[in-house]
Amino acid sequence: MERHIDKELEKVRESIVRMGTLVEEAVGKACGSFQKRDIAMAQEVIKGDGEINTAEMAIDKEIFEFLALKQPVATDLRFLFSVQKMNKDLERIGDHAVNIAQSAVNYISLGVQYTGGQHIVVMMGIARQMLAEALTSFIKNDSQLALKVLEQDDQVDDLNSGVTRDIIDMVKKDSATIESALEIIRISKNLERVADLSTNIAEDVIFNTKARDVKHHHVDDTSADRHVDRLS
């Protein structure tokens, strides 16, 4: 039977996808502002955070009213529960994008050319990819893609350590780079959080599609429900 609430659920879905697009753009621009040394781009990210915050509140309101008025159960309830959590995580990713942009502005203003290793750039690429794939897994209800996101989190953690080593080497060579080094460290920490929050989104997708809670399990843990063959 066709249900009128399906249209309302679709509106919620569209809202969170739009939110995801805004946040993905913010992260992309924040990283781009650092790589291209573009202060104007960084400032766009900082100004754009208000729109993300407004979107978060609007989605919270939609879900709150839906839960109060429509008494969703089963798949509908899992969907709304997942979206509510995604909403919060996306808003936090938006905040981290702002932090990255602010660090980019500070870094560019110092006028120092980056002479460290490429770990920070690789980390940017992977964090952005994880976010993109987490959002795609939601749009396509693809739990396998969501799993792939979860499996990349350790890589980002390793890259974070790599950035720290790069920075130490950079400062050892030239102690005058300490201020710019601190901004790189900040960017790295925020990218690590973007990756963590992207894995949260992936976990929510798995909960939504498979009704399995895979939080707090390590990928290598064979008892975890995380593995593909256990998600059927």
Binding site: T54, M57, A58, D60, K61, F64, E65
Partner: peptide
């Protein structure tokens, strides 16, 4: 209808 930004 004007969108409210809070639901309290």
């Amino acid at each position: 209808m004007t969108e409210t930004t809070h639901y309290t």
